[in-house]
Design a protein around this nucleic acid. Structure first.
Lengths: 210, 210
DNA sequence: TAGATTGTTAATCGATTAACAATC
DNA sequence: TAGATTGTTAATCGATTAACAATC
């Protein structure tokens, strides 16, 4: 496991998943080495930026050669925290929750979705793929018994904050939040928002600009 | 309709949907005026930043008073291009496509989802909510006959680029892309990516940092 | 008028790009 | 050794913060 000391800026962190994706693809195609220039062309960045980014966490290539794909990929995977497994629950078994439960990539990277929760008795007791759907009443107990550390929140806006409160109370420290709401959480809980409507509005802006 | 001349930076544009959300909520609660300071507190920004942002497109408040919520909300709505309606198709009627077809907010803002397309004969011919699901073979004709200007892409990675090519060929100029792939499109086509896996990896980074 | 808050300029900070010596 | 490409420093650019005069 590669260790790194320097602080990685959030700007760089936001680019890391993309680096990881490209390096994984290169690795799958058995490409062994890549230069910052080649990678920049592929990703639409500058070579300079890539070298700065990679240096910000100390990953190093070889002068006159480039970067070893496998090595760099593994270094970035470690920095993203993907060198350890995570246990995850999805709250809300609607279409969005179900869509996410099918993401193959999650399981491949050691992110295991253990259960889904819902209040709809028509859904509770069934399974989605191989994932069981339980009633919200059983959330607290399940989280404690299964060492859950990530919660994916796919509930209606009206109950978003309320459920976030419950989640934080049980000790979950990370929320992937699909609710279009800025959740208020204790400062030791990290939240990453996915706001599909915001993305659409950015798109209409770009479209109407032309 | 408010007109604006200065160029708005992408950094600001990415914040506009959030401003719009907060101002809509204030408006719903019949709040008439807001100061940059109050809004900053609510949104977790600085008052200075808010004033700079709003000034970058010429929206103005009143010195000594603040901003009129309704007026500012409408100005931002116009800048986001939401003063005109859009016709939209969703490609891929899996869980993700279906989830998005249920977003009430889209319709409220004049973004009309006219149809969904799929290759699965088990899905074609049915409806999702009130939205019909057609076969991909009928895509070209439907787009032409219904003045579609936005496409929401929810297909498997393997066929993402191929379908993007088809979309661009018919003349659609905007794609909301859920496929974890950097699409190659003509330069007059705008693409906004939503990458759920990338968001999750940002989350695991933040979680493992602690 | 006095108080509040904007619009706007200046100062600071951080991110990107350019350049090049180090070195494989 | 010559060529390539990194790591890293310096220069530039852009975004955020601070400060304050303008003015409602």
């Amino acid at each position: 496991m590669q260790s790194y000391s320097k602080k990685v800026s959030m700007t760089v962190v936001k680019r890391l998943p993309k680096y990881y994706q490209y390096l994984s693809d290169l690795s799958d195609r058995d490409v062994e080495k890549i230069s910052s220039k080649e990678l920049a062309n592929m990703m639409g960045l500058t070579a300079s930026q890539i070298r700065q980014d990679l240096n910000s966490f100390g990953a190093y290539g070889q002068q006159g050669y480039g970067y070893k794909v496998e090595e760099l990929k593994d270094a970035i995977r470690d920095i993203l925290g993907l060198n350890q497994p995570y246990n995850c629950v999805i709250i809300g078994s609607g279409n969005l929750g179900r869509a996410i439960s099918h993401y193959e990539r999650f399981k491949n990277e050691g992110i295991h979705i253990k259960a889904m929760f819902d209040v709809d008795h028509g859904r509770v007791g069934k399974t989605v793929g191989k994932i069981p759907v339980y009633h919200m009443d059983d959330l607290e107990q399940f989280v404690k018994e299964n060492e859950i550390n990530i919660c994916i929140l796919c509930v209606p806006r009206e109950v978003g904050q309320e459920i976030a409160n419950r989640i934080c109370k049980i000790g979950i420290k990370a929320i992937l939040n699909f609710v279009p709401l800025d959740l208020t959480v204790p400062e030791d809980v990290v939240v990453e928002n996915v706001n599909i409507t915001d993305s659409l509005f950015t798109l209409t802006f770009l479209l109407s600009e032309k």
